[in-house]
Amino acid sequence: EDPKKEILLAMLMVDKEKKGYVMASDLRSKLTSLGEKLTHKEVDDLFREADIEPNGKVKYDEFIHKITL
């Protein structure tokens, strides 16, 4: 499956209130437990690539855009 789609799906599952962003810690939890599970190192690399703080907010569109360039 398309990794971009899988990450967006994980974000939507976490963002039940439809705020347009999720906490990095919640996204990490989903990405390491769903679908093609990522390792913590892979998530760290994704966050670093997208300039996301480990305890920060992750906005869908910015995150998807940064990791798919």
Rank of each mutant, 00 (worst) to 15 (best):
E1M: 10
E1W: 05
D2M: 08
D2H: 13
D2V: 09
D2A: 06
D2N: 08
P3A: 01
P3L: 15
P3I: 15
K4S: 12
K4N: 11
K4T: 11
K5C: 00
K5Q: 11
K5A: 12
K5G: 06
K5R: 12
E6R: 09
E6K: 11
E6C: 00
E6I: 04
E6W: 00
E6M: 05
I7G: 13
I7D: 14
I7A: 15
I7Q: 15
I7K: 15
I7S: 14
L8E: 09
L9V: 06
L9H: 08
A10W: 07
A10R: 13
A10N: 14
M11C: 13
M11K: 13
M11A: 14
M11R: 12
M11T: 12
L12T: 14
L12F: 05
L12R: 15
L12V: 07
M13W: 01
M13K: 15
M13S: 15
M13F: 04
M13P: 12
M13L: 09
V14D: 13
D15H: 06
D15F: 08
D15E: 12
E17M: 04
E17K: 09
E17G: 12
E17V: 06
K18L: 03
K18R: 11
K18M: 05
K19E: 13
K19P: 03
K19T: 15
G20A: 07
G20D: 14
G20V: 00
G20M: 01
Y21D: 09
Y21I: 09
Y21N: 05
V22F: 02
V22L: 06
V22H: 03
M23N: 15
M23Y: 11
M23R: 13
M23Q: 13
M23C: 14
A24W: 03
A24S: 06
A24I: 04
A24E: 05
S25C: 03
S25F: 00
D26I: 00
D26A: 05
D26T: 08
D26G: 01
D26N: 03
D26Q: 10
D26R: 01
D26E: 14
L27V: 04
L27G: 01
R28F: 01
R28H: 07
R28W: 02
S29H: 13
S29W: 05
S29Y: 08
S29C: 10
T32C: 06
T32A: 09
T32F: 07
S33A: 09
S33C: 09
S33W: 02
S33E: 10
S33Y: 00
S33P: 03
S33H: 09
L34K: 05
L34G: 13
L34R: 08
G35N: 14
G35T: 09
E36V: 14
K37N: 08
K37M: 12
K37I: 13
K37P: 14
L38Q: 03
L38V: 06
L38D: 01
L38W: 14
L38S: 03
L38P: 04
T39P: 11
T39K: 06
H40K: 09
H40E: 15
H40V: 11
K41Q: 11
K41P: 06
K41F: 02
K41A: 07
E42A: 06
E42H: 00
E42Q: 11
E42P: 03
E42V: 04
E42C: 06
V43M: 07
V43S: 02
V43A: 02
D44T: 03
D44L: 00
D44M: 05
D44C: 06
D45P: 00
D45G: 05
L46C: 02
L46N: 03
L46D: 02
L46W: 08
F47W: 05
F47T: 04
F47Y: 09
R48G: 06
R48A: 11
R48C: 04
R48H: 04
R48T: 08
R48Q: 14
R48D: 10
E49Y: 06
E49D: 01
A50D: 02
A50R: 05
D51S: 07
D51L: 02
D51T: 07
D51H: 09
I52Q: 05
I52N: 01
E53G: 10
E53M: 09
E53A: 12
E53L: 12
P54R: 04
P54Y: 07
P54I: 03
N55A: 07
N55T: 08
N55F: 08
N55H: 08
G56K: 08
K57S: 11
K57Q: 09
K57F: 09
K57Y: 12
K57M: 15
V58H: 01
V58M: 00
V58P: 01
V58C: 13
V58R: 00
V58F: 06
V58I: 12
K59E: 07
K59G: 04
K59N: 01
Y60P: 04
Y60F: 08
Y60L: 13
Y60R: 02
Y60H: 02
D61H: 04
D61Y: 06
D61K: 09
E62K: 04
E62Y: 06
E62P: 01
E62M: 00
E62H: 00
E62L: 00
E62R: 01
F63R: 01
F63Q: 02
F63W: 07
I64F: 06
H65A: 08
H65V: 00
K66Q: 05
K66C: 02
I67T: 13
I67C: 10
I67D: 12
I67W: 12
I67Y: 04
I67A: 10
T68P: 14
T68N: 14
T68K: 15
T68D: 15
T68Q: 15
T68H: 10
T68E: 14
L69A: 15
L69K: 13
L69C: 15
L69M: 13
